[in-house]
Amino acid sequence: MIRTIIVEDDPMVADLAAGYLERIDGFCLDHIARSGEAGLELLQTCHVDLVLLDVFMPGMDGMELLRIIKSQFFHSDVIMITAAQNREDILKALRLGVADYIVKPFTFERFRESMLQFQEKRRLLLSPEVPMTQDILDRRIFIKKPEGVAGRPKGVDAQTLETVVSVLRKQVAPFSLKDIEQLTGISRISLKKYFDYLMEAGRLGSAKDYGGQGRPVTLYNWLG
């Protein structure tokens, strides 16, 4: 689980972000801090993987806290969620190494895209079985090659991908496309695109099963 805190002085925005985060698998909201000072205290006392950070707050603002995070808490990543749209703040945030910059007001779709992209990059970077080839770096980490939204190939929808991944995570024994078709109601032709994408990303393994009569069946296993 990606342990997350929200640093936001507006209760409505904080609650909205918290509600959105609860709808995405793989994230755990540990705390909501109502000020930069409270956020810093959490960072000093808890293990935090991800900070969802506002800019405009009384006292210590988000930019000041961001500078502290990047100089002292190297294991914590930051995604800005803010109304700040001036070039100076955006440039500062990018130069300090934020993972993403979301402008208020924001939709669930934009929020989810950001979280899933962060989750995928983190998984790739922390998984020793995934080779850090130039192709993986270009298409999954730095996303230099033209692809769909959030680094996905065209035809791979974020919501459908989330549904497929949610089902695959629960599979203990090897499974076929037909098995997942029955569980999701998604056709095998459509599922194949998602399986190919997940295999290329190192999240899905496969092997041929020659045990039955006729053509061998491809069985898959979830790698995480």
Results as ranks from 00 to 15, higher is better:
residue 205 G to Q: 03
residue 84 A to I: 13
residue 25 D to Y: 03
residue 217 V to E: 04
residue 117 Q to W: 05
residue 13 V to T: 15
residue 189 I to P: 01
residue 101 Y to A: 15
residue 5 I to M: 02
residue 144 K to H: 13
residue 15 D to G: 00
residue 68 I to P: 00
residue 14 A to F: 08
residue 79 I to V: 15
residue 40 L to C: 05
residue 119 Q to T: 04
residue 12 M to N: 09
residue 148 G to T: 06
residue 128 P to L: 15
residue 137 L to R: 13
residue 175 F to S: 00
residue 29 L to N: 04
residue 49 D to W: 03
residue 34 R to A: 15
residue 214 G to N: 07
residue 138 D to C: 07
residue 193 K to L: 15
residue 117 Q to R: 13
residue 161 L to V: 09
residue 30 D to F: 00
residue 152 R to N: 02
residue 175 F to Q: 09
residue 4 T to Y: 03
residue 159 Q to E: 14
residue 116 L to I: 10
residue 128 P to Y: 14
residue 61 D to E: 09
residue 34 R to Q: 12
residue 89 D to L: 04
residue 145 K to W: 02
residue 204 L to N: 04
residue 75 H to P: 00
residue 207 A to E: 11
residue 216 P to E: 12
residue 39 G to A: 12
residue 171 Q to C: 08
residue 181 E to C: 13
residue 60 M to K: 06
residue 61 D to Y: 10
residue 80 M to A: 11
residue 87 R to A: 11
residue 210 Y to Q: 01
residue 88 E to F: 07
residue 201 A to N: 06
residue 98 V to T: 13
residue 8 E to S: 11
residue 188 R to W: 01
residue 161 L to C: 07
residue 198 L to R: 00
residue 59 G to H: 11
residue 192 K to P: 01
residue 157 D to H: 05
residue 30 D to E: 13
residue 72 Q to A: 04
residue 170 K to W: 04
residue 86 N to G: 01
residue 52 L to G: 13
residue 21 L to H: 04
residue 216 P to K: 05
residue 75 H to G: 04
residue 162 E to D: 14
residue 179 D to E: 12
residue 53 L to Y: 09
residue 73 F to C: 00
residue 18 A to R: 14
residue 118 F to M: 03
residue 45 T to M: 08
residue 218 T to V: 15
residue 136 I to T: 09
residue 213 Q to G: 12
residue 66 L to R: 02
residue 151 G to K: 01
residue 219 L to Q: 11
residue 30 D to V: 12
residue 48 V to R: 00
residue 113 E to F: 10
residue 95 R to S: 10
residue 148 G to K: 03
residue 218 T to K: 10
residue 64 E to R: 05
residue 51 V to C: 11
residue 109 E to C: 00
residue 43 L to Q: 02
residue 123 R to F: 15
residue 50 L to R: 03
residue 136 I to A: 13
residue 199 M to G: 01
residue 184 T to E: 10
residue 182 Q to K: 15
residue 12 M to R: 06
residue 93 A to E: 11
residue 96 L to W: 11
residue 29 L to A: 06
residue 6 I to S: 11
residue 149 V to M: 01
residue 193 K to Y: 14
residue 27 F to I: 02
residue 131 P to V: 08
residue 31 H to L: 10
residue 182 Q to R: 14
residue 123 R to E: 12
residue 204 L to H: 07
residue 202 G to T: 03
residue 53 L to A: 10
residue 133 T to N: 05
residue 40 L to V: 07
residue 88 E to C: 00
residue 133 T to E: 02
residue 125 L to R: 15
residue 167 V to N: 01
residue 113 E to G: 07
residue 129 E to V: 12
residue 173 A to I: 01
residue 77 D to G: 03
residue 117 Q to A: 13
residue 159 Q to V: 07
residue 85 Q to M: 14
residue 96 L to Y: 15
residue 105 P to D: 03
residue 125 L to M: 15
residue 160 T to M: 09
residue 106 F to K: 03
residue 128 P to T: 15
residue 185 G to L: 13
residue 20 Y to I: 09
residue 224 G to A: 10
residue 28 C to I: 02
residue 21 L to G: 04
residue 96 L to K: 08
residue 78 V to K: 06
residue 19 G to Y: 10
residue 65 L to P: 00
